[in-house]
């Protein structure tokens, strides 16, 4: 099997807190993770989980307290490796005295492209992120959503093999989010690896091959979105109607939610047939039968509320 494209081993980061007494607070705790070539990996976690910290460590913007990481087999200390990667920072901000075209042209210079090649690439990228008409506008006049698009353009400008995106969908409207999803899927079709963080689960659920869930600096689970879901106890939801004059069996009554003539009941898979028999006996009319699919949202909430997570999330410093 091929070497993982991103290989993170025990990555840990402490930040000093407090003004006088320098105490340390662990923002990332022994993260170990591998991402394969061509994957879309969703790095999930609520605000303050340590996602941005992880990405900054990988980009060499901050330095780990412990642990190592390799991208494409090369240490994260190796800036030459940066030829092969792209990065969209969280809430990106760029030189606002430049136009979008000038900014991308500036960034393209660091890859040694000639003037003609730069012009072509920049035009292609502006097109790809839907800013073809705004290329000549100064960035100070850009909305947050437009900046996000410029940010994506600069991240993929040089056709990197691995792309890191920190909250790429934040600040975008539903159409914008969809466009970003399409861009990410397009990158996957080109065989690129995409590692993106988000606290919005539905975005990840839709496009990720695998997700990792980070909470309070610790990785709580990794797997295909489906696998993560199957870790939860599944059940079935039964929707039915009672005929006039018929009563629900007493043992089902407390478990059923009633709206008018209709009832909704959730049962564990093991009890399904038993309950269905009871319903047949009282001549209930079954309207629908569907598996209860806890969304990643539920999974997340449960994680966050779990006793293991009791040390409350501290307010972000700054």
């Amino acid at each position: 099997m091929a070497l993982p494209v991103i290989e993170i081993l025990g990555l840990t980061k402490d930040f000093p807190t407090g003004f006088w007494r320098k105490r340390m607070r662990r923002s990332l705790d022994g993260l170990t993770l591998a991402v394969e070539e061509g994957e879309i990996f969703g790095f999930l976690g609520p605000n303050g989980a340590g996602k941005t910290t992880t990405l900054k460590l990988l980009m060499g913007l901050i330095f780990p307290t412990a642990g190592t990481a390799h991208i494409l087999g090369r240490s994260i200390d190796d800036t030459q490796m940066h030829r092969e990667i792209g990065y969209l920072p969280e809430q990106p901000y760029f030189y606002d005295y430049l136009t979008a075209r000038e900014l991308l042209d500036y960034y393209a210079r660091f890859f040694g492209y000639g003037a003609a090649e730069r012009r072509q690439r920049v035009a292609r990228m502006l097109e790809r992120v839907g800013l073809a008409d705004a290329g000549g506008v100064q960035l100070r006049k850009f909305s947050k959503g437009m900046l996000q698009r410029v940010g994506i353009a600069q991240a993929i400008l040089h056709d990197p093999r691995v792309i890191f995106l920190d909250e790429p969908m934040s600040g975008l409207d539903p159409i914008g989010r969809r466009e970003v999803r399409d861009i990410i899927l397009g990158l996957k079709r080109q065989g690129r690896t995409v590692f993106f963080s988000t606290h919005i689960l539905s975005d990840a659920e839709m496009i990720c091959d695998r997700v990792g869930v980070l909470h309070l600096g610790k990785l709580r689970g990794v797997g295909a979105p489906g696998e993560i879901l199957s870790m939860e106890s599944h059940g079935m939801e039964i929707l039915f109607e009672m005929r006039a004059g018929r009563a629900l069996p007493a043992d089902l009554l407390p478990r059923a939610a009633q709206t008018g003539q209709r009832y909704r009941i959730e049962v564990p898979e093991a009890e399904l047939y038993g309950v269905l028999e009871q319903l047949r006996d009282c001549e209930a009319r079954i309207l629908s039968l569907a598996p209860v699919r806890p969304s990643l949202e539920d999974y997340f909430l449960r994680l966050v509320e779990s006793p293991a997570a009791t040390p409350a999330v501290e307010e972000p410093v700054r």
Partner: peptide, 8 residues
């Protein structure tokens, strides 16, 4: 941030 993510 986005500058230092380049080979600089």
């Amino acid at each position: 941030y986005s500058l230092l993510a380049r080979p600089v």
